[in-house]
Each structure stands twice: as structure tokens, then as C-alpha cells.
Amino acid sequence: MNVRAAPNAKARVLGTLPPVWVDKASGSWIRIRVEITASDAGWFRIRNARDDEDLTGQPPRPTFAGEGWVSGKKLVVKPQARVGRARPDAQAPVWLKLDDEQMFDSDVMVSASSLAACHGPWAQVEYVDAKLPAEERKALNIAPAARAGLPPGRFRLWVDKICGSQETVCDGL
């Protein structure tokens, strides 16, 4: 993934981040970890990118270490929340509530998502219906307002309980 000097696809490339690391034996996918410091129209300023050698069991790969911009279409967020809201506020209307055994960090939800915006400890995530299995899609009761202004087959929600670790739970539940 290219890291750019400004929040657009034509900006100068400052460096790159390596692709997802896949453990073929277990099927685990380990992503580069980044800190997000700002957002601008679907682009995110990152810093402190690093390989998670504790999870891969491999030496860290060469990774851009500075600060720059990446597209939210390439970022994944694994929120340990069960509720998606209208705004980044715990009192905002609920636009989607998952059942007790499901969270937004499930492989099914993550594979259908991309990061759209952030605000403090909240992330706005965009989902693509077609990337969700039909049985999952049928079970979701998504508020029509979550689809407003988006292309057909997409919806956006604000979620919290974002955990920095890819493979463990946070104490924010």
C-alpha cells in the first residue's frame, strides 16, 4: 500500500506498507498496525506503522516508518461493538444492532467493510451488502438513514470499542 504526502491518489508516494501477512497453516491474516492521526475525505494520516512480529512469528518486514496518507479503502477496523450509530456519540440513534453473539469485528463484517472517517475513539465504517453472505444480509435490520447519500448496496455506521490488537479482545467491552 502506498503512503502519500497528501490525501489524494496523485500525491507523491513517500513509502509503502507491506501486504497482509497470511499464515497458510492456520489461515490467519495479520495486517500492518498503524496509528491514525487525522482524516480527510476518506484518506487517513498514519504514523508508527509496524509489523506485528508477535503474531507473525517472523522478523518485521521493511515498513514506511514516517507519517503520511493512505486511502481508507485499504484500511481495516475491527471494532468490538455490537451497535452501529448515526453519529460518533454513545447517545446517537442506533442504526444497526447485532445479536448477542455477533460483533463488528467478525471476519464476515470486516471483509465487507472499509474505513470512511474517524472522530476520537470512533470510526465510521462503510459496508458493502454484496460482500456479506446472503444469510447474514437477511438478518441485518439496517436503518434506511444508514444508506442515505451512498450508492445502492452500501451503508455507513459509527462504531466504538476499537482495539489496537488484531487478535485479542480489549477491556472496553
Rank of each mutant, 00 (worst) to 15 (best):
V13S: 12
V13W: 01
V13E: 13
V13Y: 02
L14S: 05
T16Q: 13
L17R: 04
L17T: 06
L17M: 06
W21G: 01
W21F: 13
V22H: 11
V22P: 01
D23F: 05
D23S: 10
A25I: 07
A25E: 15
A25M: 08
A25L: 12
S26D: 08
S26H: 09
I30P: 00
I30G: 00
R31Y: 13
R31N: 09
R31S: 07
I32R: 11
I32V: 15
I36N: 03
A38P: 05
A38F: 02
D40G: 01
A41S: 14
W43F: 13
W43H: 06
R45G: 05
R45Y: 01
R47H: 10
R47W: 00
N48C: 05
A49S: 15
D51I: 06
D51A: 14
D51P: 02
D54M: 03
L55T: 06
L55S: 14
G57S: 13
G57W: 07
P59T: 14
P59G: 09
P60C: 08
T63R: 12
G68Q: 04
W69P: 04
S71Y: 03
K73I: 04
L75P: 04
V76F: 09
K78R: 15
P79A: 09
A81M: 11
R82Q: 15
V83G: 01
V83W: 07
G84E: 02
R85E: 10
A86C: 04
A86E: 15
A86R: 12
R87D: 13
D89F: 09
A90E: 15
Q91L: 13
Q91A: 15
A92V: 07
V94A: 15
W95C: 00
L96A: 05
L96P: 01
L96G: 00
L96E: 00
K97I: 02
L98E: 09
D100V: 11
E101R: 15
Q102N: 14
M103N: 14
M103F: 09
M103G: 12
F104I: 03
D105Q: 02
S106C: 03
S106N: 09
V108L: 13
M109D: 01
M109A: 05
S114Q: 14
L115K: 02
A116S: 13
A117L: 03
P121E: 12
W122L: 02
A123I: 01
Y127C: 05
V128D: 05
D129Q: 07
D129L: 07
